[in-house]
Design a binder for these strands. Structure first.
Length: 422
RNA sequence: GUGAGCGUGGCUCAGUUGGUUAGAGCACCGGGUUGUGGCCCCGGAGGUCGUGGGUUCAAGUCCCAUCGCUCACCCCA
């Protein structure tokens, strides 16, 4: 038996990095006033079809969709925004406060061919700011995404674009399709197909020919209506004021249909073909489209696997070991040690001892392999004397501590050292 | 869905033109030190060579099929 293709076990060495990503995200988001919301991973299929777009690849061929015992079509969420918005609408959260700043963390599912940094079950931290169309909110959200990467010690390039709105986008699309059709023979196979299915995607093509042609293609930025243009200008002004570095990429496109105006991606060159560690944008018509009030919103998602891969490439973080290992010699000492072990744990220490009756040398070796900070050696003599030998495995220093009910010496030394030297 | 590469102990890999009991390093266990870890030395355990079939006196090695993994395309976090 083995895990399904594209599904992965996260072993302890790697789980440590996940904890680092998640706790850093929670801390940064907290400072920006974002609150956690926990939502189901299973929804009615229609929710995703309506929000992401019927004609997108995700909906057409990548969703884990099945019929449940009641005959209803259900889908394992392929992204986070639709679900959070459903919850937002269902609980009338817009009445709770004027702007809801929400985030959620958890698994997403897409039936794609697995690749480096891309799994069928992957995990995202997903952020949504709902209730205002102010460009300042865009800047705030983008700055927060940027800050999370900074605090994880990761470098990524922030690219910004605007996709316009229902007012100006159709005009641009028309101009673009006309242009592409005029130069159809110069496009690659894929792009010839894209002209029909998703003309914007042509702008994002990596083939040299297409890129060259794209440089002359009508840019969305030139077709923006006045309000959209002003919006972008103000977002840029705020990002500059906050000293968040970015570059404008007029060719950036999003895979989901619901985006309007501001879109952005956080890109790295360290993950092979999977260059995006995070991406997001504004989705002003989406809440209404899902049957809620006509409220604007902006959000982004970061891929946890991709962040962890980046962390792994940067440092080799050793697993933190226990605070204390009890090395006991003989049964009386082991019996005493076992109760002492419990006292240590109740007092807040991470503590372990051998349960297989092994020799001292072997126990010392175990303690070393576990990366334990201290070892307390207890034999018959120590029991009789009411004193045990406490050895610091980092420095090799030893001294005797009293074995009494208070454990004062022991807790002060081990607890007080607070991870130093490990 | 398309293309390419790779499957040998827990991990990383070696294995000559097919030729005896399939090796190494790391990790694991024991001993050298019967009460002291890391370094060193000695020993041990652990492998249906992904799976099935075929060719051959003989297959880890050649052929076919199949499964799995990886990378890339598509698309995307």
């Amino acid at each position: 038996m083995q895990a399904l293709k594209g599904f992965k076990d996260i072993l302890p060495d790697e789980a440590v990095l996940w904890q680092q990503v998640e706790s850093t995200a929670r801390e940064v988001f907290r400072r920006f006033g974002f609150e956690e919301i926990k939502v189901p991973i299973l929804e009615k299929t229609a929710l995703f079809a309506r929000s992401i777009g019927e004609a997108t690849d995700i909906v057409e061929k990548e969703m884990y969709t099945f019929t449940d015992r009641n005959g209803e079509s259900l889908t394992m969420r392929p992204e986070g925004t639709a679900t959070v918005l459903r919850a937002f609408i269902e609980h009338a959260m817009h009445l709770r406060r004027p702007i809801n700043r929400l985030f959620t963390v958890g698994p997403m599912f897409r039936h794609e061919r697995p690749q480096k940094g891309r799994l069928r079950q992957f995990h995202q931290v997903s952020v949504e700011a709902l209730g205002a169309d102010s460009p300042r909110l865009d800047a705030e959200v983008i700055a927060m995404a940027h800050q999370l990467l900074v605090e994880l010690g990761l470098k990524a390039e922030l690219q910004l674009n605007s996709l316009g709105c229902p007012e100006c986008r159709p005009g641009h699309r028309q101009k673009l399709v006309a242009f592409l059709n005029r130069h159809r023979e110069q496009l690659c196979q894929d792009c010839q197909r894209r002209v029909e299915s998703n003309p914007l995607r042509v702008l994002d093509c990596k083939s040299a020919n297409c890129r060259q042609l794209n440089a002359e293609a009508p840019a969305i930025l030139d077709s923006l209506c006045r309000p959209c243009e002003d919006h972008l200008t103000l977002v840029r002004r705020d990002l500059e004021a906050l000293e968040v570095p970015y570059s404008l990429n007029p060719f950036m496109v999003r895979g989901l249909d619901y985006y309007t105006r501001t879109t952005f991606e956080l890109l790295t060159d360290a993950l092979g073909a999977q260059s995006a560690v995070g991406a997001g944008g504004r989705y002003d018509g989406l809440v209404r489209q899902l049957g809620g009030p006509d409220l604007p919103g902006i959000g982004f998602a970061m891929g946890i696997e991709r962040l962890v891969l980046l962390l792994q490439e940067q440092n080799g973080t050793p697993l933190p070991g226990p605070d204390l290992f009890l090395a006991c010699l003989g049964e009386p000492a082991a019996d005493y040690g076992f109760t002492l072990l419990q006292q240590c744990r109740l007092a807040g220490l991470s503590a372990l001892m051998d349960v297989q009756g092994r020799g001292l040398k072997s126990q010392m070796k175990q303690a070393d392999r576990l990366n334990s900070r201290f070892v307390l050696i207890i034999g018959d003599e120590e029991l009789a004397a009411g004193q045990a030998v406490l050895r610091n495995l980092t420095t090799g220093e030893e001294h005797r501590v009293a074995l009494n009910d208070q454990l004062g010496d022991l807790l002060q030394t081990v607890g007080g050292a607070d991870g130093a030297g490990t």
